[in-house]
Structure formats: C-alpha cells, structure tokens
Write a protein that binds this DNA or RNA. Structure first.
Lengths: 349, 349
DNA sequence: CTGAAAGCGCTTACAG
DNA sequence: CTGAAAGCGCTTACAG
C-alpha cells in the first residue's frame, strides 16, 4: 500500500484499484470478487453487497488488458484503410463506412483501431497483429501481399469494397454492375444518346463493374458509345474529373455530347465544376450522373443525380459478419451484394 | 505441444509462437530471448543469431497485450468525437483532424482507438479507461461531466477545438477571433457594407469567437451590422444554412444585402445553394464567405472564399503534446493558437 | 459458497 | 553473459 501511494507524487489521482484491493477491503478472496463481477459462479449475498459497494466507492474499472491476457480475446478490432499519399479516414465515401463500423462495433462491445497505410506496406497490419486484435476489416484497395500476410497470421477478416474478390474471403460489395445499368436506363429513358463517360481506375472492381454494366446496357439499347466518348481516369478524384473535362472542352463546346456518366461522384463533381465555370447550364445543356451518393452530391449546386451505395449498411454488415467469424459461428453466410438505388436530382433531365 | 495443435482443428494456421517456444527451440531461457528482442542487456552473438533466425522462421510477433501488462503502457490512445445523432468520423472538418492524428500517432508508434458517443454519455470514455489507453484526445463539443470523469481517472488528455477552455488542460485551437477579423477586413476592403451574418451555435467557442472577432472589427470600421442582419443557427449544418437563407429570401431579393458571412463552411455552402437555386449570381450579386476551408469549399461552384483552419496541424500538435504528457516530460508548453489564413476564391469580389 | 493455485506472455531485477 | 523467480491483473478449474 505504501509503495503504491508513493509511486505517484503527493496529491496525484490514485492508481486504479485492482481486484486485489477490493478483495482486501471486502475481506474476501480475489476469486470471489472476480466471480461477483462476472456474475458467474456462486456468491453469498453479503459478499456481493460488500464487493459491489466497494466497486462503486473506489470507482473500480476492470483492466481489459489483463482480461485479454487470460481470455485470449481483446474485444478490439482493426480497420485498415489503404491510401496512396494521404490518409483517407475523412474520405467522403469510406468515411461513411467507418462511421457505421464505429457505431455497430460499439453496440457489440468492440473497440476499434483505425489505421491507414501506404500502398505495398503492411506495417499497419503487422501492428494490428501485435496488438492481438480479434479481427480485421479491410477497406478498399488492399494489396495482395497484405492479404496473404494477414491470412498467414490466421486472424479473421472481412473485406469491404475491395478492389478484387479473394477466394473464400467475405467481401461486402455493392451490385455495381446493376448500378451501371440503372444509369444507362435513366439516361436513355430521358432521351440521351450522346453520352460521354469518365471511367475510374479499371483495376478497381467497383469502377470496372459500373462501367461494364453501363456499357452492356447501352449496347442492348442499341446506342453506341464510341471509344472516343470514353476517358479513363487514373485516380477517382475531383481534380482528375475536372482535368479530364477541361481536356474535352472542345467537343463539348461543339455540342457533341448531351450527358456525362462518371463512375463515382468525385469525378462527376469535378467535371461539373469545370462545365459550370464555362457557363454551361446543367442540366439544360448537359446532364451529369455520378455514383456513390456521397453527402456532397446532394449539396452541390445543382445537386447531382447519382446511384446510392449504402455505405452504412456496408459498415454494419462488416461488423456483424466479422463478429460471427470471431465467435466461430458454424456457417457464416456470405452476404448478398447490396442493392444500388438511383437518386434523381437536379443534374439530369 | 500436442494440446496446442489440437486446440485448433487440423490444418488451421498455427497459434502465434511465444517467447517460450523460441527459447525452447534455441536452447536458451526466456529471459535471454527477451533481452535479445529488446536489445538491452548483454547476449552472446551465438545466442543472438539463433534467436533472431528463429524469430524470422516462426514469424514471431511480440504480444503487445502481455507487454502492456508488465510495462503498464499500452501504446494505445483514444480519440473521442462527440456527436448529437450521428457519428462524425466522416465529418469534413473533424475527419481531417482525425486523419492527421492517425498519421502522427503511427509515427510515434501509437495505435488509436476512434470512438464516438452521444451527448451527455461517457460510455466511450469509460470504455477507453478499461482498455487502459495511455492518453486521450477529445475533439469538439465535449460535456463537462465527461471531462470531470476523465480527469478523475487520471489519464492525460488534450482537447482539440473544444467548445470551452478548461483550466490547466491543453487545448488546441485556432485563432478564431482573428479569423473573424480577417473576414471583416476582406469584406469591407472589397466595398461591402450591407453584410448578413449566419452565426453558428454560440455555445461553441469557435463560432462565438469568429462572430465576435467579425463584429468587433466591423464596429471599428464604423460599419453597422444591425440585429436584423444576424441570424443564429442552432446547428452548424448545410441544411440549417439553406433553411436560414430561405427564410431570408425576402430581404435578399429586395437587395438589402451584398454579402454573407457564415461562421463555418457548411452553413455558408447551404446558404449559397439556396441562393444559386434562386438564380442569384455569386459573387456578382452576393458575395459569400465561410470558415474552416473544408475540402468541399474549393470544389463548390463557385468555390468558396473562406478562412483556413489548419486541421492537419491541429491533429499533429495534439499527438505531439499528448505524447509529452504521457511520457511525463517536465514542462509541456501549452501550444500557441494556430494562425488562420484567408483564402480568397470565386465566391467574393 | 469460498479460497489457493496456476497460468495468460511478457519484462525486470537479482544471483550466479 | 545467462537463468530462475517474481509479478503485471485478471480468470478458471479444483478442492474444500
């Protein structure tokens, strides 16, 4: 006891009491205290009253580290977000997924480590392994080497909107091909037949499928989308959308196209910004459609017609599934792909 | 050994090797292995070679939980974001701070728990205490009861952009009053004298000071801002900015004002959106200024003139300071307030 | 109903 | 240079 109080200077707050201190003061053994706290095993009402009162009085908080040590379960999970240069926790789309994960994780009593890492590095993954997380959620563009690494370590994980499917791994994704189809339908239904397409990185599953679904549906409608009407973006950023559009200004000014489809909102918004700066009227002269339904899509002026991807549901499912994996439930059902939904706003007519 | 392998079925990945297993195979004691890993204390080259080889071969990863147990340091920190209804990890401004925190924390070898909680609840805080985080970063609107709670527990923490200052607590903030002054200067310099103000929640330090700085400077310039030209927003959201402006449409249509200042970008953007929908030309007819410089400010059409708050620097400082607190460095200097910077864009002339 | 003992995976004096 | 021992704060059989 003396040593304890002396280890901190004078009036500093007391160290957190341990089960041992409670036991000492209550005049029972540590085992008894432990049983009372966990609620399993028998205990006499008297012992219970005394211990519970002490817990309240001393503001006892169980040490989760010690618990993890013996139970071999930390009740912590890790979320890995990959990035090229900057972290992307604040990314308008992935951020939403993270939000939903935080909420859902809390309701299942998990705490979550959020980490980001560069391409081709698995420092974060290694870190999470050392911390002995119960499971991992991998978001977006993850490198094969990282996946192999994690798999080798034997920690359960699920992927969310990953760039590629991996055999046997639970992968939560949107029905992106169907989403592309919805866009094509909407645009053709509203009379557009000269459509320009900004296709995001085709190495990423979602951009690829959105583009493919769109093209397939257009072909079926008998409307041609010539090669010249498609531009491939290297990144899926606002700046790139703006750039691509600025390089296409010639044909657009000449009235070659009546609509634009970009495989995500950021690209679409960038393109729109450029057009608005040229005093193009949207949707009167050009209609624009994006994909994702990030918050900004509704805020932009004009607001952006897009395909909503249910980021919240992705987050919730990922936690639910990961929890099942962690608890080793017998047969965890792979989730069905999420239904995309067309949201018509001011940018199309 | 047998028990070990049987505890997992058949071909499942092996359990993580422990220091004990390394010691056994290397024919040395656990102490020796520990010393070699930590690099402190002596060890013979032969022992070192053998142990290091084994670590490589078995892919040994130290168990951070066990380490935390003995060192009483988890190398984990918690970030608490408060919210009303929804989590705000994806918030355009606070998200940026979190991003910077993640990056800076990683470079100092901390892992970070990100949590959100409702107003008036300290469930998350309690959770972090149980997890025995080394320190805490509190962002934005935190309740006094939570602060008291944490203080009682004796864990070091810093506040970032909190709603109020707390004695003796390190608080990282922007020079908001100065920022308000910058806006007033810019607007008066460009000839505006009929300015409408949308003031965010005055219970929050930053909104209050931005407003105050602006008003003080206007008064000094001899330009009156009558009561009727100020509207107080209950939340600092896009929707509220939009709403407030829609209710002010009468005076605006009548040409009563030539400029708007909103105490954050979201409010400003909402207001702008409404005006653009009424075909008001910005900045020709109305100039608009926000505050924060969230990413979307530059993307909007027209892009928004605003005052940049260095969210990245806030995140970095918070980690640096927290680390000093954790390591109990003698006298940690309270940080000076961050310099705001006026960013002139398309929305003002 | 209760307590003594062992153990989770490490680190850290302390002897040798 | 190395190993045995104790201990971090819990939980979990196992005796009583």
């Amino acid at each position: 006891m003396w040593e304890r109080s002396h280890s901190r200077k004078g009036s500093a707050p007391l160290d957190n009491p341990t089960i041992k201190e409670i036991a000492l003061r209550a005049g029972v053994s540590k085992s008894t205290v432990s049983r009372i706290i966990s609620g399993k095993g028998y205990s006499s009402p008297e012992a219970r009253d005394k211990v519970l009162a002490l817990i309240e009085e001393l503001q006892y908080k169980p040490n989760a580290v010690a618990r993890a040590m013996v139970s071999q379960r930390t009740h912590n999970i890790g979320v890995l977000l990959y990035r090229r240069d900057h972290p992307i926790a604040s990314h308008p789309f992935y951020g939403k997924i993270v939000d939903a994960i935080l909420l859902a994780a809390a309701s299942l009593n998990y705490s979550v480590f959020v980490t980001t890492d560069h391409d081709m590095s698995y420092r974060s993954a290694d870190f999470m392994m050392e911390k002995r997380v119960d499971g991992l959620i991998l978001i977006s563009r993850l490198q094969q080497n990282v996946i192999d690494h994690i798999t080798k370590f034997g920690v359960p994980y699920v992927m969310v909107n990953g760039s590629t499917d991996v055999d046997g791994v639970i992968h939560i994704v949107n029905q992106d091909e169907e989403g592309g189809r919805l866009v094509a339908e909407h645009l053709t239904r509203t009379g557009h037949d000269r459509i320009f397409v900004i296709a995001g990185p085709q190495t990423h599953r979602s951009h690829h499928l959105r583009f493919k679904g769109f093209m397939t549906c257009m072909a079926l409608s008998g409307i041609e989308v010539p090669e010249a009407a498609v531009r491939y973006a290297e990144t899926s950023t606002f700046a790139e959308g703006y750039d691509i559009m600025s390089r296409q200004w010639g044909p657009f000014r000449a009235g070659r196209y009546s609509a634009i489809f970009a495989t995500n909102d950021m690209l679409a918004l960038g393109a729109m910004k450029f057009l608005l700066e040229q005093s193009v009227r949207i949707p009167e002269q050009i209609s624009v459609v994006g994909f994702d339904d990030i918050d900004f899509a509704a805020m932009f002026a004009p607001s952006l017609t897009t395909v909503k991807v249910d980021a919240g549901e992705m987050g919730r499912q990922s936690i639910k599934l990961l929890d099942q994996l962690i608890r080793q439930e017998p047969n965890v059902a792979h989730p069905s792909q999420l239904q995309p939904k067309l949201i018509v706003r001011q940018s199309t007519k």
